[in-house]
């Protein structure tokens, strides 16, 4: 019996042409938890996320939601189960914030019919959770990067999916927006019971906000576990090739990583 709204990845391989990017990935993402996908550049985090979202086409019998193979689902069915917050959003045209959030309702609206009252209420609910109610009428051309990221999160929420995938949701934002958006993301798991999977670059943010971490290296899951078990200096040194110190954050009792230097040739190793 599969757990509700869990995502299962079983023996997933993925190649871009001849270049193998993911190998034998097995992972399970549970509702009510924030799971982090970590790893150096090129380790396959984003590729894994895109396979789960079916943006890239995974092989048959590798990615399951509630026990259903996602390759058997239509784009519309999938959009009701999984929402995605991409890494970069650049929108050329002058949509209003509300227009963009309302696009999250697309999987529910029949062709040629207008948005229903329910759709409008759902969009308003999503904007409230994401903290952008006041921006509804604004043009997305005239809002800040942090606000735009919140708009994209609101759009994902408007999909009313049980699973949300985020690809480096805060990597281009200032420290306030990094924390406040990650706090919102955590709320989605803890208060709304969503299955949250997020790619993160910042190890300290991952330590603070993730309940479980998959650490990728060269297309395989090198380590997985709770932050305090995965984010140790031995593992970080091995995977990221850096010298670092790991303390305990006195406020949260989570690991806190202080990078010292890279282990580039010429720097010597310690």
């Amino acid at each position: 019996m599969e757990a509700k709204n869990a995502v299962d990845v079983k023996n997933l391989d993925f190649s871009y042409g001849d270049r193998k990017v993911l190998e034998e990935i097995c992972a399970r993402f549970h509702p009510g938890m924030v799971c982090g996908l970590l790893g150096p550049n090129g380790s396959g985090k984003t590729t894994l996320l895109k396979n789960i979202a079916a943006i890239l086409k995974p092989q048959k019998n590798t990615v399951y939601i509630n026990g259903t193979d996602i390759t058997d689902m239509t784009a519309n069915e999938l959009a009701r189960e999984i929402s995605v917050v991409p890494q970069n959003t650049y929108i050329e045209f002058d949509f209003s914030v509300q227009d963009i959030v309302m696009m999250g309702r697309a999987p529910y609206i029949k062709r040629f019919s207008s948005e229903s009252e329910e759709d409008i209420e759902t969009a308003q609910w999503a904007m409230r959770i994401a903290g952008i109610e006041d921006l509804a009428e604004r043009s997305i051309k005239n809002i800040s990067g942090g606000e735009l990221q919140r708009v994209i999160i609101a759009r994902a929420l408007a999909q009313r999916s049980n699973i949300i995938l985020l690809d480096e949701p805060v990597s281009q934002l200032d420290i306030y927006h990094q924390l406040s958006i990650m706090e919102t993301v955590r709320t989605l798991a803890y208060e709304y019971g969503m299955t949250v999977v997020t790619v993160l670059h910042d190890l300290n943010l991952a330590a603070e906000f993730c309940d479980y971490i998959y650490l990728l290296k060269d297309g395989v899951i090198a380590y997985s576990g709770k932050p305090k078990d995965v984010l140790t200096y031995e593992i970080i040194e091995e995977v990221y090739k850096i010298v670092c110190l790991v303390y305990e954050n006195p406020a949260s009792k989570k690991p806190h990583i202080v990078p010292v230097r890279s282990m580039q040739e010429g720097n010597g190793s310690c």
């Binding site: 943006i55 999987p107 999909q159």
Partner: peptide
């Protein structure tokens, strides 16, 4: 409308 905001995004919003 949805495709104009990005093809990958459009896929995740249920557009073929």
């Amino acid at each position: 409308n949805i495709i104009s905001t990005g093809e990958e995004t459009a896929k995740t919003l249920g557009v073929e």
